[in-house]
Every structure is written in C-alpha cells, then in structure tokens.
C-alpha cells in the first residue's frame, strides 16, 4: 500500500518512539529556553501537520488551564526570596510567579504534544502497534471504534423518530428529557446488542479464531525509517542522559538561577533543537519537493 510521505508516512513504531521522547522531554524540562523552544517546535509541527486546525480548536482549553495555573500558583506557594507584594498577608514572590509561568508553559507543551500524537498515530497505526503485544485487547478496541459511528448514526435515526412522534421537543423539562434519552438508549441496545451477536456468528463462519490475525495495513522499515530511528535513539539518549546529569536543570527556588551557558548546555540544546526539527523538516521537505515536481510538470 502507498504510504503517506513526510512525517506521517514514517513507520508507526518510529513515530511512536519519537512522541515518547518528545513527551518525556516536555515533562522533564523546566528550563525557560528549552520549554520555549519546545513550544515553538510544537506549533511548527501542528502547522505542518494540518495547518494548525486541531491546535486552534484546543486553544481555549490551553489558555484557561495555563492562566489558571499561572494565577493560582503564586497564591498558594510563597517559596522564593524576592517578595513582589502581599496578597491577604501572604507574600507573593517573583520566583513563584516565574515558576507558575514555566509550569503552565510545560503543561501546554504536554497537551500540544498529545494533540500532535493523536494526529500522527491514528487509531489504525496504534492498533497495528498494539496487536502483536495484546491481540485481544487491540481487536476489541478496533471493533469498538467501528461500532461508534454506526451507533451514533442509529441514535440520530431513533431521535428523529422520537421527534417526529413528539416525544422530544424543544424546551422540554430536564427530567422528561432524561427519561426520553434513556428510551433512546433502550431502543439502541435492543437493536444493536443482538445484531452484534449475529456479526459474531458471521465472523466465526468466515474463519475468525482459526489462526493468527494479520493486519490490513502493512509497514516495512525502509531506509528512511532506519535513518530516523537512529537519529531519534542517538539524540533522545543525549537529551535524557544530559538532563539526568543535571544539564539544563533550571532551579527557580530559592532565587532565580541564571541561564545555563556552559558548553555542555549548548551541545544539549543543539541536540534537542535537531530532535525537535525532525518532523517539521520532513514535512517541509515534502512540500518543497511537491512544489518542484509540480513546477516541472
């Protein structure tokens, strides 16, 4: 089968590893430079994946969460040496304000990374990865995912009928609406549960359980995947080991620390920047390539 090009076409296992390292880095770094870089890279990643549509949809949630943490953290925590002002007899320190901002930033990073993850590792790729480890669970989830659009469609049909009969109407009382909603569910369950038993019988008659399941989608490790894998392993271990040895270990308390400008910090930063650049570069290269081919046509 033809694989998508760019970062989306990467072997799912490699992409999964990439996101694992990315998520761990998002959670690990409290250094303002590293977190800021992560945010920039994640925005670039989202823009290159779907033009930032998913990101814009979640924007409100991210803003509310970040603001909440930014405001509440200094109010509950009075650690730090530099007192800015007093709020109800509690000192509000510069350090805890900075800390709240950094923490809000890293939380937004984690959420953005999760959103990017679900754009790249779509459910079929996830199930492909999960099938060798947990075949029964993966299969159950596959079937559930197939049922959800079907059941949603059926629910809409049932509710159309209820509306036509006048059981559901605008401005009905809450309790009545809950009762009618349950009626919808009863119809759905009676309709679907037994039907799924028939599907099961049909599955068995076509040989379900007679051997190992194969996957509909196939991925082979290509040269590009190997190259990416090595790059991720190399850079990822640099990033994690460097962090564990205390590079970019930004301490806010008791007093704001100056930024780390040692040589090892620069190397660490460089590795991280290259790591972050992998998907946007892959996607950007694809786009350039496409433009050049098209311009030659």
């Amino acid at each position: 089968m033809s694989r998508g090009l760019g970062f989306n076409g990467l072997h799912p296992a490699v992409a999964m590893l990439y996101f694992l390292v990315l998520l761990v880095s998002c959670m690990m770094f409290t250094d303002p430079v590293m977190s800021g870089l992560t945010l920039l890279a994640l925005v670039a990643l989202h823009l290159s994946l779907d033009g930032g549509r998913t990101m814009r949809r979640g924007l409100k949630l991210y803003a509310v969460l970040a603001l909440f943490i930014f405001i509440t953290n200094p109010l509950f925590s009075s650690r730090g040496a530099t007192i800015l002002f007093y709020f109800r007899d509690r000192p509000v320190t510069q350090e805890s304000v900075v800390y709240g901002a950094l923490f809000a930033l890293s939380l937004v990073n984690v959420l953005l990374a999760f959103a990017a993850y679900s754009l790249v590792i779509t459910s079929d790729k996830f199930l492909l990865l999960a099938a060798p480890i947990a075949p029964q669970t993966a299969f159950a989830i596959t079937v559930t995912l197939r049922f959800i659009p079907l059941l949603t469609r059926r629910l809409k049909q049932i509710m159309t009928v209820q509306r036509a009969f006048g059981y559901i109407y605008p401005g009905m009382r809450k309790k009545l609406l809950m009762r009618e909603g349950m009626e919808t569910m009863h119809t759905l369950v009676a309709w679907s549960l037994e039907e799924s038993m028939q599907s099961a019988a049909s599955m068995r008659s076509r040989g379900y359980g007679s051997g190992k399941r194969s996957s509909a989608v196939r991925y082979r490790m290509e040269a590009r995947d190997w190259a990416c894998l090595w790059l991720i392993v190399l850079l990822g271990s640099q990033i994690v080991i460097g962090r564990l040895y205390g590079v970019h270990d930004y301490e806010v308390f008791p007093r704001l620390q100056p930024l780390d400008v040692s040589l090892s910090a620069w190397v660490h930063l460089g590795c991280y920047a290259v790591f972050l650049a992998i998907p946007p570069v892959m996607n950007g290269k694809e786009r350039l390539h496409w433009r050049i081919i098209r311009s030659r046509m």
């Binding site: 159950a140 079937v143 549960l193 599955m203």
Partner: peptide, 9 residues
C-alpha cells in the same frame, strides 16, 4: 467471537 464482540459493543 460473541464474547469479544459483546465487550466491544
């Protein structure tokens, strides 16, 4: 197969 589908359903 029935039991698996039941859980999924």
């Amino acid at each position: 197969a029935e039991e698996l589908l039941l859980v999924a359903m």
